[in-house]
C-alpha cells in the first residue's frame, strides 16, 4: 500500500512541468504557442528534424547537430545559472522553480530505446 502510494507520488512529481501557482486561461496559454512557433521554425530551418542530419551525426560525418545541441545546452545552462544566482522572478512575480529529474532505470532502458528509434526515424517525438 505504502509502496503504491509512494509510486503515485513519484509519478506525480515527474508529470509536473508547470510550477506556476496562478491559473492561466486559454488566452494566456497562447503565449506558449508563440514560443512554440519560433521553436518549430528553428527545428525545420536548421534541419534538426532531418533524417540525413541525424544519420550524419551518428556517423560522425557532420558537426551540425553537435553544434546545435552543444550551443543550446551552454546557452540554457548559463541562463538557468543566472536565474538562480540573481533570483530572477517570472513576469508574474513568482520565484522560478525547476522540476528535478529523478533517476529511474527507465533513463537507461528507455534512453536506449529512444536512441535506436531516433536513428531510425530521424525524429524526436514532435
Amino acid at each position: 500500500m505504502s509502496l503504491i502510494e509512494q509510486k503515485n507520488i513519484s509519478t506525480e512529481k515527474i508529470a509536473t512541468h508547470n510550477n506556476a501557482t496562478v491559473k492561466e486561461n486559454n488566452f494566456h496559454l497562447l503565449k506558449y504557442s508563440i514560443v512554440g512557433i519560433v521553436f518549430g521554425i528553428v527545428f525545420v530551418k536548421a534541419e534538426i528534424i532531418s533524417w540525413f542530419r541525424i544519420q550524419e551525426m551518428f556517423k560522425l560525418q557532420s558537426f551540425h547537430m553537435y553544434g546545435v545541441i552543444g550551443t543550446a545546452v551552454v546557452v540554457a545552462a548559463l541562463s538557468v545559472a543566472l536565474i538562480k544566482k540573481f533570483k530572477i522572478k517570472t513576469i508574474g512575480g513568482e520565484a522560478v522553480v525547476i522540476t528535478n529529474k529523478p533517476f529511474t532505470k527507465g533513463n537507461i532502458y528507455g534512453g536506449l530505446m529512444f536512441g535506436l528509434g531516433w536513428a531510425m526515424t530521424g525524429a524526436c517525438p514532435h
Binding site: 510550477n19 492561466e24 503565449k31 506558449y32 543550446a72 536565474i83
Partner: peptide, 15 residues
C-alpha cells in the same frame, strides 16, 4: 533553442 529554456521559465514558470 537554448533561449527557449529561460523564456518558458520566465513567462510562466514552465520547465
Amino acid at each position: 533553442i537554448g533561449l527557449t529554456v529561460p523564456t518558458l521559465l520566465l513567462i510562466g514558470n514552465k520547465t
